[in-house]
Simulated assay, not measured.
Amino acid sequence: MEKEVIYNEDLHFEHENWQRELDFWEDELKSFHLRIEELINRWTDPMVLAEIEKFQNEFMIQEKEFDALKDQIAMHEKNMAAHYEKNEDVLNKTFVTQHLDFRKVLETERNLYYNLKKDFFRFMTKYM
């Protein structure tokens, strides 16, 4: 059975895509914060304001999570650069396993963020 070979450039490509996705999400959150401000100025009902606060908190949690994910990507890139400097284009099994685990983490985050956006859009449709 032939072993699968995974190269730095393949992982780097995926890291770049993840980075762009996280950057996009961060930009989206900036626009969501603007919408939140509009809602705060529009509503005085305590129930609506409590929902707004819930979304504010969830957006802040997401921002921190995005930063943490970006930090992990940067650490992976640093590790790959160290291998590259040693002329090691193929990574060790542990690092590849970490990369595959991170891929799952990002997929979970993608789903969580998608559901948060969906809930927020429903909320805005109701109260904008």
Rank of each mutant, 00 (worst) to 15 (best):
F66R: 01
E28C: 06
A81H: 06
K118Y: 10
N79S: 11
Y7D: 07
N17E: 13
E51P: 00
D67E: 12
E63Q: 15
H15E: 06
K70W: 06
Y7M: 12
L22P: 04
E109S: 02
A50L: 10
E37C: 05
N92A: 03
H12T: 07
E109H: 09
F13G: 00
Y114P: 02
I73S: 01
K86S: 13
A82D: 11
K3L: 09
T44G: 07
T94Q: 12
L112C: 09
T108L: 08
N8E: 03
L11D: 03
R122L: 01
K64W: 01
Y127T: 07
K78C: 14
I52G: 03
A68K: 09
L34C: 01
F59S: 07
L106A: 10
Y84D: 05
E28G: 00
N111R: 14
F120P: 00
Q56M: 03
K54I: 05
T94M: 10
F95C: 11
Y84P: 06
Y113N: 08
E85C: 06
D67K: 15
E63I: 02
R122Y: 00
W43V: 00
E58T: 08
E9K: 08
D10K: 07
E14G: 04
F55K: 00
D10F: 14
R110L: 07
N115H: 02
E51I: 01
M1Y: 14
E2H: 11
L112Y: 02
D23I: 07
I36E: 10
Q19C: 08
L11Y: 08
L29T: 03
R35I: 02
L91E: 02
T125K: 11
E9M: 11
L39A: 05
R103M: 14
L29D: 05
R42G: 00
T108M: 03
E51D: 15
L11V: 12
Y114S: 04
L34E: 00
A74H: 14
Y114E: 10
K64G: 14
E16I: 06
N41Q: 03
E63F: 05
E58V: 08
K118N: 06
K93V: 14
S31W: 07
K54E: 09
T97C: 13
D101V: 13
F95R: 03
E109I: 01
E14C: 04
D45N: 14
